[in-house]
Nucleic acid binder design. Structure first.
Lengths: 156, 156
DNA sequence: CAAATCTAGTTGCGCGCGCAACTATTATTT
DNA sequence: AAATAATAGTTGCGCGCGCAACTAGATTTG
């Protein structure tokens, strides 16, 4: 926009480059990394789901916590689960202490599966992103996104 | 994953922080900035569309170029256009030299509209992201995403 | 110049997801 | 203890988008 002239606090060129780069590149990058997974018979969404479970204590999480970590709505997760349940990568067990909650639990089969795929995903993340960045950039991404995340989570 | 032990070239903690921060925060941030636009009666997708046109020479672009810049498929853009066409923010004109191509052209109404909304969007981008970052982080985001983008675009 | 190929754009279809509404269970009020 | 509210999960519905198939116009090739 021509507002660059009009509006005094428009983004300067470095700020613009950061913003533009982020907007246009982040979707490209995530799509590409998701595609790298397809040869292994899994899409990005299911991978994230299994990965979250594999890192959780006892490889299980309440559905609502899992949804939150995956940035899905509760209904979105319900549907997401269909696939990994049918593949028997995850099982569901009702909490005995709170009849409302259901745990999503990574099965042995799911664990073996993600353990097999993880190295390829790692390789993908490295070559598409991490290994391209300098130490400074790595740290800046870490601290930068941390600040942004903190801000996102509060009502400001 | 426990691969942190198993696999020697697993991400170290700084790399992991950068990757994790990027994955989980980027969608939150983009969603939030899109929501900030809603009070002004436009969603993120339409805003990006109008913004791209407003920056193009003569405020017009071939449909296929526009699709590419918006990271949409050609069919996706066709549908996206429905809204902004009906709102008369954009008009379509067939190229006289190549009967296949159609230009999407920002109308006066569309221009006035985005000129009104842009300052609020700018404010949103500043408070949600840019103003939270240090100079170093700004530059690292710029150079980092530039490298990633370059890599994404080639067959490697 | 006819035939084959390529490119731009639109339509049919299916998928993934969020929202609103609903059910079931637990927590809080009075 | 009964009534109300909050929380977890599922279902109905609509929307946005990509893919494959199609049409129309341009380009290339024999």
């Amino acid at each position: 926009m021509l507002d660059a002239v009009t509006n005094p606090n428009w983004l300067n060129s470095a700020e613009m480059k950061a913003w533009r780069g982020f907007v246009s590149t982040s979707s490209d990058l995530l799509n590409l990394i998701a595609r790298d997974l397809e040869p292994f018979g899994i899409d990005g969404g299911d991978y994230q789901l299994l990965a979250m479970l594999s890192e959780a204590p006892d490889q299980k999480l309440k559905m609502c916590d899992l949804a939150e970590r995956l940035r899905l709505s509760r209904s979105g997760l319900t549907r997401r689960m269909d696939g990994v349940l049918k593949a028997k990568y995850v099982s569901q067990v009702r909490d005995s202490h709170d009849g409302r909650v259901i745990f999503a639990h990574l099965t042995k089969k799911g664990f073996d599966f993600i353990r097999k795929v993880a190295p390829h995903h790692l390789e993908s993340v490295r070559t598409r992103m991490i290994d391209l960045l300098s130490q400074t950039e790595i740290h800046a991404f870490g601290s930068g996104f941390e600040k942004i995340a903190k801000n996102v989570k509060q009502p400001d």
